[in-house]
Design a protein around this nucleic acid. Sequence first.
DNA 1: GAATCTTCCTGGGCGC
DNA 2: TGCGCCCAGGAAGATT
Length: 288
Amino acid sequence: MPELPEVEVVRRGLDTHVVGRRITRADFRGARVVRRHVPGPADLSARITDNLVNAARRRGKYLWLVLEAPDGHHHALLIHLGMSGQLLVEEPDAPAERHVHARFGFADDGLELRFVDQRTFGGIALAELRRDGIPDPVGHIAPDPLEGAWDEAAVVTRMKSRNTAVKRALLDQSLVSGVGNIYADEALWRAGIHGERLASSLTRPALSRLLRHARQVMLEALSEGGTSFDALYVNVNGASGYFDRSLNAYGQEGRPCRRCGAAIRREPFMNRSSFSCPRCQPRPRIRA
DNA sequence: GAATCTTCCTGGGCGC
DNA sequence: TGCGCCCAGGAAGATT
């Protein structure tokens, strides 16, 4: 599934292949892909036709194209890839993918942009931009660790006040965005902290360390994943080379911990799974 | 308001 | 071999 580093690679691909072009055609297929647009897909299509793509931006796992309408108004085409979403850049006459939900054509008659999503967790919406350049629906999403607005000390302060498991806090998009289950487990492993520890029970230096590990692991994935993508594909199937080689905790149940050799354990967490080292990341004795 | 639970969806993988 | 079930995941909205 696309995590923040993959979404950033997609954004860079959009920067290269889509920014600077004028949309002349937008076709949506299926009832679910267009989100929160009461007048419906046809209206959204009409609103973005003849718009110029001015920029491709990202916060956490949200992507958006800054569009300039013919009347000069700026708004955003907001895209979330969900679990299985892909953006592809292809010849207009290439065969349609089974789960293609949107196709965008451009004035230069060049490669078209397609949104393909097997599970339809992803979606597309038209949004107004706030004064700070963030689309309205992204307003409640906190800065991610890879952007300029990232303020580690402020996030530590907010996490310290949370009366909940530190992994829940790490996954809370209103505190820090872009950290999914995989990177949460990797950051906790690196920091030697069990995810069920109360956020408020950790020291500020420990929380700082955890956040710095989260940032670092995503930077590493970005530097590895960024080179493994076909130039024509803005994204590939969510699997970057990083996941094959570099995971220390996530999905490693039973394998020896690379730090101490103990077998990595798997525990249920929020109807999902957490992976951790039983020796490096001892469970808290008491957990509410 | 904070914390937690439920729901959306479908393909891959597994057990029987 | 094939059927049915479980699982994965982010985030909105509901519920406590």
